Lab assay of single mutants.
Amino acid sequence: EQLARLKREFNENRYLTERRRQQLSSELGLNEAQIKIWFQNERA
C-alpha cells in the first residue's frame, strides 16, 4: 500500500514540497528522509 501510494504521488508530481512530504510521512508511517530518498531514486 505504501509503495502504491508513493507511485501515485510520483505520477502526479515528480517533486514534493516540504509540506507534502510531511503529510505523506504522517499518512504512511514513514519518516521524511525515507520519502525524500524514494523520490530521488525514482527520478534517477
Score class of each variant (00 low, 15 high):
4 A>H: 06
3 L>S: 06
35 I>E: 00
17 T>G: 07
18 E>D: 15
26 S>Y: 12
39 F>H: 02
38 W>R: 00
14 R>Y: 04
39 F>V: 02
42 E>Q: 10
31 N>T: 15
36 K>G: 11
10 F>A: 03
27 E>W: 06
1 E>A: 08
22 Q>A: 12
22 Q>D: 05
32 E>W: 09
19 R>I: 11
40 Q>E: 15
14 R>W: 06
2 Q>K: 09
7 K>R: 12
34 Q>V: 15
36 K>N: 14
40 Q>G: 04
30 L>P: 00
21 R>A: 15
38 W>L: 04
19 R>H: 14
43 R>G: 07
19 R>Y: 11
8 R>P: 02
9 E>R: 05
5 R>M: 09
29 G>Y: 01
25 S>G: 09
19 R>F: 12
44 A>N: 14
31 N>W: 05
25 S>Y: 03
8 R>W: 11
1 E>Y: 09
19 R>M: 11
16 L>V: 06
2 Q>M: 12
33 A>V: 12
5 R>F: 07
27 E>N: 02
43 R>Y: 12
43 R>S: 10
32 E>K: 06
31 N>Q: 11
4 A>N: 07
32 E>F: 04
29 G>E: 06
11 N>M: 14
30 L>E: 01
28 L>P: 02
8 R>Y: 10
26 S>I: 14
10 F>S: 01
41 N>H: 09
31 N>D: 15
2 Q>S: 06
16 L>P: 14
38 W>H: 01
17 T>M: 03
3 L>D: 06
28 L>N: 00
27 E>L: 08
14 R>D: 04
11 N>E: 13
4 A>E: 15
40 Q>I: 10
44 A>Y: 10
6 L>G: 02
19 R>Q: 15
35 I>Q: 00
43 R>F: 14
37 I>K: 12
2 Q>Y: 06
44 A>I: 11
6 L>R: 01
10 F>N: 03
34 Q>H: 10
43 R>N: 14
7 K>E: 06
1 E>C: 12
37 I>L: 12
27 E>V: 07
40 Q>P: 02
39 F>S: 01
8 R>L: 12
35 I>A: 03
37 I>W: 14
23 Q>W: 11
39 F>P: 01
25 S>W: 04
35 I>H: 00
44 A>H: 11
40 Q>S: 11
17 T>C: 05
29 G>F: 04
13 N>L: 09
14 R>F: 05
1 E>L: 08
4 A>C: 14
22 Q>L: 11
42 E>P: 00
43 R>T: 11
14 R>Q: 14
18 E>K: 15
21 R>W: 13
44 A>T: 10
43 R>K: 07
4 A>Q: 11
22 Q>I: 11
28 L>I: 11
34 Q>E: 14
8 R>S: 07
23 Q>L: 12
2 Q>G: 03
15 Y>G: 03
3 L>R: 04
9 E>M: 04
4 A>K: 10
9 E>Q: 04
38 W>P: 01
22 Q>E: 08
27 E>S: 05
35 I>N: 01
9 E>P: 01
41 N>S: 07
16 L>M: 08
20 R>I: 10
40 Q>F: 08
26 S>P: 01
24 L>N: 00
33 A>F: 12
3 L>T: 07
3 L>H: 07
3 L>Q: 10
1 E>I: 10
24 L>G: 00
38 W>K: 03
44 A>G: 05
37 I>D: 12
40 Q>V: 07
1 E>W: 13
40 Q>T: 07
36 K>F: 13
41 N>L: 11
18 E>F: 10
37 I>V: 10
25 S>C: 00
18 E>V: 14
25 S>E: 08
39 F>I: 00
6 L>P: 05
10 F>E: 02
35 I>R: 00
25 S>A: 13
41 N>K: 10
44 A>E: 13
17 T>R: 03
4 A>T: 06
36 K>D: 15
44 A>S: 10
10 F>R: 01
7 K>D: 04
17 T>I: 01
33 A>H: 14
8 R>F: 10
27 E>K: 04
5 R>L: 07
27 E>C: 09
6 L>V: 02
15 Y>K: 06
43 R>H: 11
18 E>N: 12
18 E>I: 11
32 E>D: 07
21 R>I: 15
38 W>C: 00
9 E>H: 03
28 L>V: 06
4 A>L: 09
21 R>Q: 13
6 L>E: 04
3 L>M: 08
20 R>K: 11
11 N>K: 13
3 L>Y: 10
40 Q>N: 09
18 E>W: 06
9 E>F: 06
2 Q>E: 06
43 R>A: 13
4 A>D: 12
14 R>N: 11
26 S>L: 15
3 L>I: 13
29 G>P: 00
